[in-house]
């Protein structure tokens, strides 16, 4: 038997209004079964109130070798962080 069930990536949103978060993957024949399996595998202890499932094959990822060109440009842009600016204490909390 070589028709292995396809792989799905599972995203779960917890109870406190945070984003769906990737929690892992599993095999399932279709999306509906992927959700059912995800409920059993990833929410046995109240971990979430919403599940997304995505075929792993449908995810496009950035390449590890692009790490430099993609992320290094932001290193020099420290002015994007609030701590770059000195605000005198007299001004109060900002």
């Amino acid at each position: 038997m070589s028709s292995e069930w396809p792989l799905w990536e599972i995203f779960i949103r917890g109870q406190h209004g945070l984003n769906h978060r990737h929690v892992g993957s599993l095999h399932a024949p279709d999306a509906e079964m992927a959700i059912r399996n995800a409920r059993d595998v990833y929410t046995r202890r109240n971990e979430g109130v919403s599940i997304w499932v995505v075929r792993s094959n449908d995810i496009t990822a950035s390449s590890p070798s692009d790490k430099g060109p993609l992320y290094e440009p932001s290193n020099s842009k420290v002015y994007r962080h609030p701590t770059f600016y000195d605000i005198p204490d007299e001004v109060g909390h900002m």
């Binding site: 069930w5 769906h20 024949p29 279709d30 997304w52």
Partner: peptide, 22 residues
């Protein structure tokens, strides 16, 4: 379990579509 795994795959192939979007 082989017949069952294969059966679900056949079912999935027949009914691909009708998904609820995120």
């Amino acid at each position: 379990g082989a017949w069952f795994r294969e059966g679900l795959m056949a079912h999935a192939a027949k009914h691909s579509g009708g998904r609820v979007a995120a």
